[in-house]
Amino acid sequence: MNNQRIYTMSVGKVYPLYIAKAEKKGRTKEEVDEIITWLTGYSQEELEAQLEKQTDFETFFAEAPQLNPSRALIKGVICGVRVEEIEEPTMQDIRYLDKLIDELAKGKAMEKILRA
């Protein structure tokens, strides 16, 4: 599968879609930010800087300060593929983020989303 397109896509261009998906279901931008910072280790300020720079997904995850080790607990299907079976690490991290945003939009409690 050619992952080049998603790798070069700007996180800043997709981010408003994450916010819209969450808000449509009564969730907040702050919850989306909490998920992203939990997953990547970016501070709020670092996240905002990455969004402003229009960093692509590949760089965003490659430069993440501390990818959360608990992300391996994320299970389920996104885009018809089980996230735990994705072999390419960057693609898996992108799909982990997609899965967490889906869980938020489905009304799951933050403690469960963040695998607390």
Rank of each mutant, 00 (worst) to 15 (best):
T28C: 07
Q66M: 06
R5Y: 08
E58P: 00
E63G: 00
P89M: 01
E48F: 12
A22Q: 01
L67N: 01
F60V: 07
V81C: 11
D93Y: 11
M91D: 09
I94C: 00
N2S: 12
T55N: 01
D102H: 14
L47S: 02
N3W: 09
Q92V: 05
M9E: 14
V83G: 05
N2E: 13
A109Q: 15
Q4N: 14
A116C: 13
E46Y: 05
N68W: 03
R82S: 14
Y96P: 02
L97K: 04
A72Q: 15
V83I: 12
N68P: 09
K108S: 10
E103Q: 13
I74N: 02
A49M: 13
K24P: 08
R95T: 08
S70V: 10
D33T: 07
M91C: 05
K108T: 07
L39E: 05
G76Y: 02
W38S: 01
I86S: 09
E48S: 15
G41C: 02
L51A: 10
K108F: 05
N3D: 13
M1P: 05
T8C: 08
R27K: 15
T28L: 09
T59E: 12
T59V: 10
K108L: 09
E34M: 11
E84Q: 06
N68Y: 02
T28G: 06
E30N: 06
G26E: 07
V32M: 06
I74C: 11
K25L: 12
G80V: 06
L104C: 09
K25S: 15
Q92W: 05
E88P: 06
A62Q: 12
S70L: 14
K106S: 13
A105G: 15
T37N: 02
E87L: 12
K99C: 11
A22D: 04
R5Q: 14
L104D: 04
I78E: 10
L67W: 00
K75T: 15
P69F: 03
A116M: 13
E30V: 06
E46K: 14
I101T: 01
Y18T: 10
L17D: 15
G26F: 05
S43C: 04
D98K: 08
E45A: 15
G12N: 07
F60W: 11
R71W: 00
N68F: 02
L100V: 07
S70M: 13
V14C: 08
E45M: 09
K21A: 14
M9W: 10
R82Y: 11
G41F: 03
E34Y: 01
G80H: 09
V14A: 11
S10E: 10
R71C: 01
I113V: 04
K21Q: 15
V32F: 04
Q44P: 06
